[in-house]
């Protein structure tokens, strides 16, 4: 188990390194010159040249990468080209907001997805299952801006239950922000719901076929005990990993949702950065998302190992 963890950890470092390379290189191919962009079209040659020098843009690429990566590790995430302020506080603040949204979404879709998945598995191939599986597959593929805008149209504008726009102040507390969070959270949940439902369903179907479930039945345990103790204990294992992985995945999914609702989270920040070509902002927020993503994958693996005696106890 420990050796396995060590391996996984080494792999995460490798992933982060490669991902940072991808992100760094991708942002170098930007059309146009960064210094030029900052100073605008009418800046003098010398001013642009001075800024290039100041930003280290004249140095070879690998040096620039090492400077950037080294700075990132030390906590110097660069200065926003647009606002001319350090990137780190902005990113961290937006991250907090995204986390708020993500947690709320998790609380909605995980329990619901498990319940629907188990129902679908128990009613396998009957109409409830076909409906649940088909719809959940559709939800997985339904872009958040479609579901989000439809929700706004019905629940916000039509019924006026919730505000249509969630562009709250970035430092609002959870209590104040709550009504603004409901619609975005539901929107993100729809996609997540699809995943969890499908995972739970297939996991449960696999386990229901097992001989030990039949054995538990024939031991005369009450049906609910068979379901909870013998079926779900095994079938929810893969679901657990999806939930843990989902935390990182949510952050990716938030990009569109936050844009739709104007919610000041990390996703919205990246879109903003891309629109304004604010390189340090894009780099820092992408790296944070990738880091959270990989670490939640690790968390998923660890959790799986802890819950699965085959791995926990070893030989």
């Amino acid at each position: 188990m420990y050796r396995y963890l060590l391996r996984r950890f080494a792999f995460i470092l490798l992933t982060l390194f490669l991902a940072s390379l991808i992100i760094f290189t991708a942002t170098q191919f930007l059309p146009g010159d960064v210094a030029q962009i900052i100073l605008g079209q009418f800046a003098t040659e010398t001013a642009v040249e001075n800024l290039r020098e100041e930003l280290g843009l004249n140095r070879p690429l690998h040096i620039q990468y090492l400077n950037w990566a080294g700075g990132f590790i030390r906590g110097d995430w660069g200065t926003s080209l647009v606002s001319r302020t350090p990137v780190r506080p902005i990113v961290l603040e937006r991250l907090g907001n995204s986390a708020m949204l993500a947690v709320m979404a998790l609380l909605i879709y995980v329990p619901l997805g498990i319940v629907l998945g188990v129902i679908a598995a128990l009613k396998r191939d009957k109409l409830p299952d076909q409906l649940i599986s088909g719809v959940s597959m559709a939800f997985v593929g339904l872009p958040e801006f479609v579901s989000g805008l439809l929700l706004i149209a019905f629940l916000a504008i039509g019924l006026t239950w919730f505000p249509a726009n969630s562009s709250i102040n970035p430092d609002t507390t959870f209590r104040e922000a709550f009504p603004y969070l409901v619609l975005p959270a539901i929107t993100v949940s729809l996609t997540g719901l699809g995943y969890i439902t499908r995972m739970t369903r297939s996991g449960t179907i696999d386990v229901l076929r097992m001989d030990y479930v039949r054995a538990a039945d024939l031991k005369g345990l009450p049906a609910w005990q068979v379901l909870i103790r013998h079926v779900l204990r095994n079938s929810l294992l893969p679901t657990v990993t999806v939930v843990a992985m989902g935390i990182g995945w949510l952050l990716g999914g938030l990009i569109v949702t936050e844009t739709v609702y104007g919610y000041p989270g990390l996703g919205r920040l990246i879109v903003y950065g891309i629109q304004r070509q604010d390189l340090p902002l894009i780099q820092a927020s992408s790296m944070i998302i990738v880091a959270i993503y990989t670490f939640s994958n690790l968390a998923a693996d660890v959790l799986y190992g802890l819950l699965n005696p085959r791995i926990r106890v070893g030989e």
């Binding site: 792999f11 490798l14 991808i22 290189t25 942002t27 191919f29 990716g252 990246i270 894009i282 992408s286």
Partner: peptide, 23 residues
């Protein structure tokens, strides 16, 4: 392992970053 690396970046984010640079 390479596939895992690609998979460990959210697809939409990666797509955005790449399209941002490719145009």
């Amino acid at each position: 392992r390479l596939m895992d690396v690609i998979l460990s970046i959210p697809p939409l984010l990666l797509a955005m970053v790449i399209l941002f640079s490719l145009g």
